[in-house]
Design a binder for these strands. Structure first.
Lengths: 163, 163
DNA sequence: GCTGGATAGTTTAGGTCTAAAGCAATTGGA
DNA sequence: TCCAATTGCTTTAGACCTAAACTATCCAGC
């Protein structure tokens, strides 16, 4: 009999006196639980989520991307992309070429090995996520997806209102 | 007229060929959007989310907590708690006392200043979260909260099944 | 042509987090 | 009693991330 433990929420109980905060803490606990689980499984293969994200973006852009484009695609800072790409290049998964059009820019592309590595990781990643949401039927997923869409719109509006 | 920009999702389009992954990416983008927004606003007050989390746990436990209890409450590693608490102590927001019962353990408590600081931050934090979900009505929030409950259970089950 | 902003990337300083190794104190048996 | 495993915590090495300062290049308008 496999033991099923509930995912705990940060500050269980505390801070949660407002419905909005309760919602936020539950959202956060779900996201962190999945992220840590995936992170842990990537680590078991000597990979990390951040590097996987870079490879995924590049796999989709065969023509290559420059650093700024990567930064925007991954929603992380410029400096962070520099670090990740330089390490991936050292490991032989990507190649950095100067841009012919703009001498400030460089173009990052997957190497054959990078593409092969990514393919293996992506398949596993798919399966892991599938496994984590396996207990929700199609309708429940649809409801959640739609509800998150509402939240997304609300966040965008809320961010536009600066304090 | 305030401009409302949509929250972007990582890998917009790519990787999202499976409904489970699409759901995960949307969940992640919502969580990250809120987290970064809150992080940014904390930074504007010279605070950080991680330190706030520690203060929140301690505020709830007037009698004090030892390091292990903090680690479990915040869902972070032991070593991380050590770092955070030592810096908070240096800043005069918490006090570390040796445990009378167990000489290995120490008991962490808020100082008066820590309690006051936390109160201010907590009120602001509440308001920020309220603002971000303001565009969802009570029913929409309830649906999302419930749907996240389903997901939470599914994750717990999925994690029990090791690959 | 020049020149003063924009733009592309890198560097730096610093905060967050983890896993794993290590230290000291405690505790449960033999 | 004693000693081996456990427990509480710290340290270390390393990955991730950001904001801000910096360098180099581009480009638009004079």
């Amino acid at each position: 009999m496999t033991e099923v433990l509930a995912i705990r929420e940060k500050h269980d109980g505390a801070l949660a006196d407002r419905s909005s905060v309760r919602l936020w803490l539950r959202l956060l606990s779900c996201a962190m639980a999945i992220e840590k689980d995936v992170q842990r499984r990537f680590a078991g293969r000597g990979a990390t989520l951040a590097r996987f994200d870079v490879l995924a973006a590049l796999d989709r852009h065969e023509e290559g991307m420059n650093m700024g484009a990567l930064s925007r695609a991954l929603l992380v800072s410029n400096g962070n992309v520099t670090q990740l790409v330089q390490k991936l290049a050292k490991d032989g998964l990507v190649r950095i070429a100067p841009s012919p059009a703009d001498r400030r820019a460089s173009i990052v592309r997957l190497t054959a090995r990078g593409r092969a590595d990514f393919a293996g990781l992506a398949a596993a990643h798919h399966d892991w996520i599938d496994g984590l949401v396996a207990d929700m039927d199609g309708e429940a997923r649809e409801i959640l997806y739609h509800a998150l869409g509402d939240l997304k719109r609300s966040i965008a509006k809320g961010q536009a209102v600066e304090p």
